[in-house]
Amino acid sequence: MSGVGTTQAIAPVGTPQTRARSRPPLRALLPWAAGPAWFVAALVTWRWPDADDFPDTTTLAGLFAGIGVALLSAAALRRLSARAPWMIALGLGFAAWELVQAKLLLLPRPFFGTPQDLLDVFLTDWKRLGDSLLHSLGLLVVGYTAGSILGIATGVGLGRSQRFRYWALPIVRLIGPLPPVSLLPLAMVLIPSNWLASEALMALGSGFPVTILTWSGVAAVDPAYYDVARTMGARDRFLVLRVALPAAMPQIFVGLFMGLGMSFVMLVIAEMLGVKSGLGFYMQWAQGWAAYPNMYAALLVMSLMCTGLITILFKVRDRILGWQKDGLKW
């Protein structure tokens, strides 16, 4: 039996001693280098005198050292192998940034801040930053959810009903391709609340790709799938919710992904032009006061928010589309 041979061939590789020996020694030591890299950053920050009067230098050094300790423990617990190179690069990168800007002041200020400046924003202004994040998230989630639901419903209608297609398609074709930003001035006049106007445009912007991709997914469903369910007595409700929608799900998720990107764009624009809160508004304000560290901090928060939302979307997708043979990993 070939199965027996395979097992024998694989078994020795699986034992711990052989694995440790067969690995190049440098790779095995790499996790242990991550902590020291951050200690270097901490040391540079702490011992090297600042070129100017920067805030929070000692706190920052402590933070670097703390991360170093955490990374050392992770290495000891063998939880740090794939991420080790990145952690080393980050530690050394912070050390270099600290050296170049805080200690030697090689780059023009105030566009280039120091790590201290950034930390100071988070330490002193975290309340306003957090508040802005919550406002942005609120604006985004409401508009995006409304747009997605609207888009899926319209897409299913377009894919399943001749009459709906007749009436809805011209409207979709007229309004959909229009960049929602171009409607912003009009919406701000027509809709009394800036918040509502922004939500409506965000729903419109994210709803369009969802509509088109849901439609294309529903239209591409193998008619034999409907035949199978119909011969078992399925009615329209089952055909839509339990046949058409799951079959179109891969396409729908492409639409949801594109729609999410669209709603990020609308979020920033809405907050910079109309809504008087959120990260976009914060950034606008920071630019007005030439508070560059604040802008960088807001950018960082926004980027974490966006990537976090996309991660959530992909997690949901992996869950729902677990039946697919292949799936891309975010």
Binding site: A224, Y225, D227, V228, T231, P246
Partner: peptide
């Protein structure tokens, strides 16, 4: 006048739903 569950069809292609176990 239409399909019904008292007349069950097994089609030439298996047409299993890929999203169901």
């Amino acid at each position: 006048s239409g399909p019904g569950p008292d007349r069950i069809v097994m089609f030439q292609d298996p047409t299993l739903y890929p999203w169901r176990t």
